[in-house]
Design a protein around this nucleic acid. Structure first.
Lengths: 253, 253
DNA sequence: ATACTCGGGTACGGTTCCGTACAGAAGGTG
DNA sequence: CACCTTCTGTACGGAACCGTACCCGAGTAT
């Protein structure tokens, strides 16, 4: 990670969605650093130091099967946070690595626990984005089972581009094949199809979306569904949850 | 559902894991009814009336894709609850149906909200089982992508048997094919293999596990992984979370 | 008893993706 | 410059699973 942290000036949609009267205090505990691809941010039984709010970096939650094969089970970008489950006291169960380099905002675990206690808005947003993540992960079960690889490729490229806030980023076919749970050669085939269709360009570890409309038309329904759910989680659900949170506190008192 | 509810006398592992000093009050708000296969317990924008704690019934969380195909994205049995997300104020996003008939304990949504406020133990257990469910759903992404159908069949049959607390239950190949996102004919092939291996018997909408050891050896690693995580969520995590919950309430006060 | 519905066995050609392998091209390194 | 590593293109046989279809037997309704 970058050795000289800077202050936070926006870019993580979860932090930016905190009600303005609470935001300054929460954001005050945050610092911005760079992160490189393949850096591990969380792992079972280790790395509890930081809660991570990606800005234009993208993280992957991964698992390793008994035969040693690694595959992606979730993606975390500027719509959410990694390590937030610490706030609920449960152990970290999955390894999280940086997939696309960029900047992250991070908060020490202790500061985060404190912030969740103080800010009802942060608490509500953490819960609603976790719920959106559950919805998305559920969708991936079906998507990976029934949709063709080319569609899944397109979906993945779009979702990562949205989270990285750019149309071009570092990515090799090999890395993408791990993320999608298929062979590298199969990814190369799908990538070539998407290129021939005029949707993307790529070379030696970089991809660029050249025609988003075409790429969206190639992607399965799961892309737009996911985008909509994350938007909703950061918008209307947050308000609903905020109301509930206040009610619960009143109930306890 | 059954028209004459009876009182709760144990059987849902989540309810039974509530610390004894709080359990009686929570369980007092619960009633037990029968439920038949294909009954809808929750759906987006409707059916907020009850929170459901399965006893020996098994529920499926399902989704319908744009082409009309339905597939399972989660299973809920005696280790958890359906509709608990209501406690967090978020909307119900998925349809939940009864997959294996049996008994459920249910609590009105209002009573449930009240119970979560009063019982720190229930609150902690709801959160830890939700976390276990996330872990399991993540595992299914990879499982459905890389494991062979016969292994997945075995895994499914075992997990449902554990939750239904019996080795024989109603199930057609057709229903199972929807759950696994494959053709009915493919399920018939896999079922025949498992039968020939001496693991199961089945006929006209019923399955029976005749040799659990064989079936476990045919199943992928995901079965034991899932079983272990659900056990842990109801055991040690609950304790951890309970500590955290008390700390949070203190912080708010 | 007869007709009908439902659950399951099986088949056949086709597609997707796998496992493996090898070669070429781009870029970094000494 | 030569060398090496990384990244991508491509091929080939094979396995898993699909779409579709047809059949049969068991239970159910009339």
């Amino acid at each position: 990670m970058n050795a000289c942290p800077t202050s936070y000036e926006g870019g993580n949609r979860l932090l930016d969605a905190i009600p303005s009267d609470e935001r300054a205090e929460v954001v005050g505990a945050v610092e911005v650093v760079g992160i490189e691809s393949a850096t591990v941010t969380h792992a079972p039984d280790v790395s509890y130091d930081w809660v991570v709010f990606p800005i234009d970096a993208v993280l992957s939650v991964v698992t390793t099967l008994a035969d040693g094969e690694t595959a992606e089970v979730g993606t975390i970008g500027n719509e959410g946070a990694s390590g937030a489950e610490i706030a609920f006291g449960a152990p970290v169960l999955r390894k999280t690595i940086c997939q696309v380099e960029g900047r992250i905002a991070r908060m020490s675990t202790m500061a985060f626990l404190d912030a969740v206690d103080r800010s009802a808005g942060l608490d509500a947003l953490i819960r609603s984005t976790e719920k959106a993540r559950m919805f998305f992960v559920e969708q991936m079960i079906v998507c990976n089972t029934v949709h063709k690889l080319e569609q899944r490729c397109a979906r993945w490229l779009l979702l990562v581009a949205d989270r990285a806030s750019r149309e071009e980023y570092r990515l090799t076919h090999d890395f993408l094949s791990i993320m999608l749970g298929v062979r590298r050669a199969t990814v190369s085939d799908a990538a070539k199809s998407l290129h021939d269709a005029g949707a993307i360009e790529y070379a030696r570890g970089r991809v660029r979306i050249v025609d988003r409309a075409i790429l969206e038309s190639e992607a399965c329904e799961c892309y737009k569904l996911a985008a909509r759910v994350f938007d909703a989680a950061l918008d209307t659900w947050g308000v609903t949850l905020l109301g509930r949170k206040r009610r619960r506190i009143a109930g306890i008192r």
